[in-house]
Design a protein around this nucleic acid. Structure first.
Length: 599
RNA sequence: GCAUCCAUAGCUCAGCUGGAUAGAGCAACGGUUUUCUAAACCGUAGGUCAUAGGUUCGAAUCCUAUUGGGUGUACCA
């Protein structure tokens, strides 16, 4: 929050430190000084909180504020006035300072970009199962992962986006078995169904038939638990999994074919979501990994073996439990393969940091995983981070695939685009657009609304989505920000404006809103840094909204810029608009949202 | 039970490494278009920041307890 002030207002702090030395003969650390934006109702732009200084001045807060204010007014040329309200010293900074800042810093075409920081970061996200299509929960994951990756790139890191696909296991076999039994050779081509939806259909059929068998067995007197174990279908699925593991050709071929359908389907959804990956990992290749890590842990005495042969780690001293890392029969569990996969990813990329974008139901798992890697002495373990995000809830509660209460990703995307079309047509501004331009626009607006809706919320918070209410297009929304951008571009086009650094031969009296804009726009790089450090696109999303909102206020307050007769004033205001558009566009790009030139 | 996350306006959310009178959007009500795009702008109304203590000059923010909710606590992934 205050970071930008330490950048832009650094000189005020050091001057204040000098002032305290001179006034009270005390050497204080710069960190002691607390400065913030001046609240709207007071005069000034920068405020120093004087309470922390009072113990050095041994005077009242008011008196201290006045002393320091007088010193700064006297010794710092940018300070033009001050006032003290309670313990707050409000400073007015010369408009010339802000205008120079605007000219030299904000008008740079590279504004908001960072040079390489030399760090390599991996972001793992999406990580779908190949037995059913993606739903809204996956959408949040994908948009979040993509955006965090872009955020880290923007802040200067080299980023690898990876997708660890869960393409094997009993759940995959269920779809395969159901298709074998009841599919009659149905294919995406024969049915017109998208591949992932087709496979998902058979996953549901399996579940339905499985339940029938369970009910039948229960009717024969078995308990629920017995029935679940003894149902022929589940036994067949288990047998199929074994066959898969031994490389049975028929099963492998079926698996390849059906997974292929799913990948084709995912490809479409990913494309629509605008997400991409530098590398795919497949669990079918990694599920046997991790046994080396287990050996390593045993050798180092980090793990121990129980009499039955199973391997464990005792984490009770760290406030956690004992955790199994290898079954008694020598086979892997989930965490075994994650240990191995983590090592493999590090060997592949040598990254400094690795971000796992995974829902908060796996908080415990990652806590354990990272702790184990640390205990194994992996130097890179401290660079691991679980970006945990909250579930997407419906008004009825949690989404459940089995109960059919899921919001399907493809349906949602289609609905958003359709809604965008409807709303845009109702406004009647795009009738002269080409069909191609229209459909691109509808897509961008619909996805803009969806992406902004999901990304503006802090990742760790749960998110409520009500399918009966369409996502807003007004107010704090993606389309509002997109509209603001289009409006600015239209203005610049009409004015024939080309941005240029303008040497002012005089200074304008900035309006209050213009001053606010420069101050707000000046925070952009710090916002990127802060959002990247927090792995939170949400803070950036809210910042971009503030920028758009403030521009609209400015746009209404100021007389038509196109008709402005004072050429320098006009040029300056067009530049101000240009920077605003630049910040909006760059910020939205990080969120994965395209902003139209006109709409 | 234990662990962990969450609780701010009718609704959806900001604000949280302590700072001034807690902010937006939606919904409600009223106003703004012979002026550069009204998906906009301006205004009114709406709050015991879950509750109770504590630390502090100062707490929505930090600590403790309580209440309510989510998630986890498999030789599933």
């Amino acid at each position: 929050m205050l970071i930008w002030l330490f950048l832009a207002m650094n000189f005020i702090i050091s001057e204040a430190v000098k002032g305290i030395k001179q006034l009270y003969n005390e050497d204080v650390a710069e960190g002691l000084l607390n400065i913030q934006d001046t609240r709207k109702e007071f005069e000034g732009q920068v405020t120093i909180v004087v309470f922390p200084i009072v113990r050095f001045s041994k005077k009242s807060p008011e008196q201290t504020g006045n002393d320091l204010g007088a010193y700064l007014l006297e010794n710092v040329k940018e300070v033009t006035a001050f006032n003290v309200v309670k313990g707050f010293l409000n400073l007015s900074i010369d408009h010339e300072y802000w205008l120079n800042l605007f000219n030299t810093k904000l008008l740079s075409p590279h504004y908001g970009t960072f040079p390489s920081n030399g760090r390599k970061v991996m972001v793992e996200y999406s990580s779908p199962n190949t037995n059913k299509p993606l739903h809204l929960g996956h959408v949040r994951n994908n948009l979040l992962g993509y955006s965090v990756a872009e955020l880290l790139k923007a802040s200067g890191s080299e980023v690898f986006k990876v997708n660890l696909v869960n393409d094997r296991g009993i759940h995959i076999c269920k779809s395969m078995l159901a298709w074998q039994n009841w599919g009659n050779g149905e294919t995406p081509a024969s049915s017109g169904l998208k591949g992932d939806h087709l496979v998902g259909k058979y996953y549901v059929i399996f579940d339905k038939e499985y339940k029938k068998e369970i009910d039948a067995l229960k009717a024969d007197g078995q308990t629920e638990e017995e029935a679940k174990k003894n149902a022929p279908l589940i036994k067949a699925a288990q047998a199929m999994l074994l066959a898969w593991e031994t490389g049975d050709t028929a099963v492998i071929d079926l698996w390849k074919m059906m997974n292929g359908w799913v990948y084709d389907g995912f490809e479409v959804t990913y494309k629509n979501l605008g997400v991409d990956f530098d590398k795919y990992y497949y669990e079918s290749n990694t599920y046997l990994l991790g046994k080396d890590s287990v050996e390593e842990g045993l050798a180092k005495g980090v793990f121990f073996k129980k009499p039955d042969g199973s391997v464990w780690i005792d984490l009770t001293e760290d406030g956690l439990d004992q955790k199994l890392v290898l079954r008694a029969d020598g086979t892997s569990v989930y965490i075994t393969q994650d240990l191995g996969t983590a090592q493999m990813k590090y060997d592949d990329f040598n990254m400094d940091e690795s971000i796992y974008v995974v829902g908060n139901e796996q908080d415990y798992h990652f806590k354990v995983l990272f702790l184990i890697l640390d205990k194994l002495g992996k130097s890179w373990a401290k660079g691991l981070y679980h970006l945990s995000y909250g579930m997407v809830d419906l008004p009825s509660g949690k989404m459940k695939s089995r109960e059919g209460t899921v919001v399907d990703a493809d349906d949602l995307i289609a609905e958003m685009v359709a809604t965008a079309k409807e709303k845009t047509e109702a406004l009647g501004k795009v009738d002269h657009f080409s069909e191609e331009e229209k459909s691109t626009l509808y897509y961008n607006i619909g996805m803009g609304a969806l992406k902004y809706f999901l990304l503006k919320v802090e990742p760790k918070k749960r998110l409520l989505f009500d399918p009966s209410e369409s996502i807003d297009f007004q107010g704090n929304t993606g389309p509002f920000i997109q509209y603001t951008h289009a409006r600015i571009k239209s203005l610049l086009t009409k004015a024939g404006h080309t941005v240029g650094i303008q040497g002012f031969d005089r200074h304008f009296a900035l309006t209050e809103t213009e001053l606010d804009m420069i101050i707000l726009l000046d925070k952009f790089p710090a916002e990127i840094t802060a959002a990247a450090a927090a792995f939170s696109p949400a803070t950036l999303a809210n910042y971009v909204y503030e920028v758009a909102k403030l521009f609209n206020k400015f746009y209404h307050e100021v007389p038509p810029i196109i008709k402005e007769e004072d050429a320098q004033l006009q040029h300056y205001r067009l530049n101000l608009s240009w920077v605003t558009a630049h910040v909006i566009k760059s910020g939205m790009r990080i969120l994965g949202i395209e902003v139209p030139e006109r709409m």
